[in-house]
Design a protein around this nucleic acid. Structure first.
Lengths: 261, 261
DNA sequence: GAACATTATTCCGCAATGCGGAACAAAATG
DNA sequence: CATTTTGTTCCGCATTGCGGAATAATGTTC
């Protein structure tokens, strides 16, 4: 249960507890949820009622929460959105990648996403779907696991030895006794990437979804590893099509996005 | 200099200062900026060095900031993105509006945005541009003033008397001695909305940008007021076109999005 | 509408927690 | 190597946040 393996826990004079708790309240809101009561927040965060009350009060005053007039429930405020858009704005790769991704999605009638690794997850920075009706880029900001997705495996395979070992430690903790199995699968995926240049996940993360992934060579090292996937429904894309048509095209797309490679 | 006019300042036992300061650090990042040094953060937030150091330390540990490996500078972390996407996910209007907006944008070769009022600003929740190459929905989450934009004026005009007076107070503080002029302009816009059903801003917010706006009847009252605009470059859209073609179509779009009106 | 259950807010004494000046360390600059 | 600039750590102080308990507000049941 030690979150901070490098030090003896809880003696961290530099860590600002009140800030952490406030953010814990904000992150208790799961996407798709409209409004939460003060009590639900207390349950989810594990904080005492009165503390939550004070934190919601503060967050509301700052615009990070807004209180529903009649129900009194809290919802995430628009100030949070400003932060989120500041994040997206700071990644200039998106500006380059998005139009190319859009062309790709239209040409191949498939969805394509740009992701970045965060620990043992991939966070989507941009998604282009072939038909725009399905879901409103709700995927931007959402997380998928490194281990079971094509995009995650591609990313994993592109890590340096030291980074890979760090990620391994992360996942060992995350998957517990399943880790050996997961690791074997990951190693297998890595070998495939080394040989063929792309990764696969055919129905492993979501049933009936076929996906291939490639890593982008990191433009500035240490900036975080970027990766792409292309995914479509199994009824429209079989394994052969993914391997012979989509995967090469995706590798081509990666080269377009990062020319120096 | 009193931020909280309702009470005698700084005697607020419920307000959690440390949380506010931490968020002040996060919001010091402006969109488009990549990485900030610890010192710049101190300057922008007005906090002492050591405090900022502690806050950045905490935020980094929580994933809300990430530290660039070599420069040591901080950038907004991916955890912030998750929060932002949770906000967007909580507004189900987007799901309804987005495809309709997209059709509108394509049909009229014009940009259309969905916004929500936050104080004396409008925050964009969704934008659809006619040509997708220009800017990657960077606009989602960005703020434009209520007073000088078409979308803001439409929203203002749809407020109830009490809400409008609150907004007035907000803007009086914001615009200072310019407020009488601004208010006159707003009142004029409001009359126009009452008569014709839409608002205009022809080059007033951004030079050479023509825009019209309409308000959406709030589906659940007190949930915040939603509004739409359509905007295009002056060389492609003259005032007559905006008034006779775009504005009626936008009003039609509003009725499509919120059928019960 | 009385009696109860559930949830939110406020109070208040205690001490833990965060504060910030200053000392220290580490780079960057010349 | 001296100097400036920037980041981190230390540490005593008291402010600030804490959380149990009391209070208020709201909703529910009969």
């Amino acid at each position: 249960m030690s979150f901070t393996p490098q030090e003896d826990e809880s003696k961290d004079r530099l860590f600002v507890e009140a800030l952490a708790r406030g953010l814990r309240v904000l992150s208790a809101f799961r996407p798709g949820e409209s409004a939460l009561s003060n009590q639900v927040l207390a349950q989810r965060t594990g904080l005492p009622k009165s503390t939550v009350s004070r934190l919601t009060y503060t967050l509301t005053k700052l615009g990070y929460l807004s209180q529903d007039a009649d129900s009194g429930y809290y919802r995430l405020g628009l100030a949070v959105l400003a932060l989120g858009s500041a994040v997206l704005g700071s990644y200039d790769i998106r500006r380059v990648a998005a139009p190319l991704m859009r062309d790709f999605a239209l040409k191949h009638t498939i969805s394509v996403s740009l992701g970045m690794r965060d620990g043992s997850d991939i966070v989507y920075l941009e998604t282009c779907r072939s038909q725009a009706r399905v879901s409103v880029q709700l995927s931007v900001g959402s997380r998928v696991p490194l281990a079971s997705t094509a995009i995650g495996r591609a990313c994993y395979s592109s890590l340096s030895t030291t980074e890979r070992e760090l990620a391994d430690t992360d996942m060992a903790a995350r998957y517990g006794q399943d880790w050996p199995l997961v690791q074997a699968k990951l190693e297998q995926a890595r070998q495939q990437v080394l040989q063929r240049g792309y990764s696969e996940s055919f129905g492993e993360f979501e049933r009936d979804v076929m996906a291939v992934g490639v890593a982008l060579p990191s433009p500035a090292p240490g900036q975080g590893s970027l990766c792409l996937n292309a995914s479509g429904p199994a009824f429209a894309f079989d394994a052969d099509t993914m391997r012979q048509q989509i995967a090469p095209a995706l590798m081509q797309l990666a080269r377009q996005i990062v020319p120096g490679a």
